[in-house]
């Protein structure tokens, strides 16, 4: 069953917590991965791979650069999940 936007944001918060150590409650749709959540370009690849597994979605490398905020990622996953 496809995840809701709320479930996706919760999932991303857990992933960002695991990778960057940011508390889950600080991960919200308007937050920038790079500027607010201490996720650099290498760690972003980890976030993407973890999100792909968790939400059964493929996020090609060329789309990753468009995912600036948690909201961008949640919308992308919502639209492309299997």
């Amino acid at each position: 069953m496809a995840a809701t936007q709320e479930e996706i944001v919760e999932g991303l918060a857990e992933i960002v917590n695991e990778i960057a150590g940011i508390p889950t409650e600080d991960v919200a749709i308007e937050k920038s991965f790079t500027d607010d959540l201490d996720v650099d370009s290498l760690s972003m690849v980890e976030v993407v791979v973890a999100a792909e597994e968790r939400f059964d979605v493929k996020i090609p490398d060329e789309d990753v650069k468009n995912l600036k905020t948690v909201g961008d990622a949640a919308d992308y996953i919502l639209k492309h999940q299997a």
Binding site: L42, S43, V45, E46, V49, E52
Partner: peptide
């Protein structure tokens, strides 16, 4: 391949 850590080289 996809699961190889991007931190591997550093």
């Amino acid at each position: 391949v996809r699961r190889v850590s991007p931190h591997t080289v550093p």
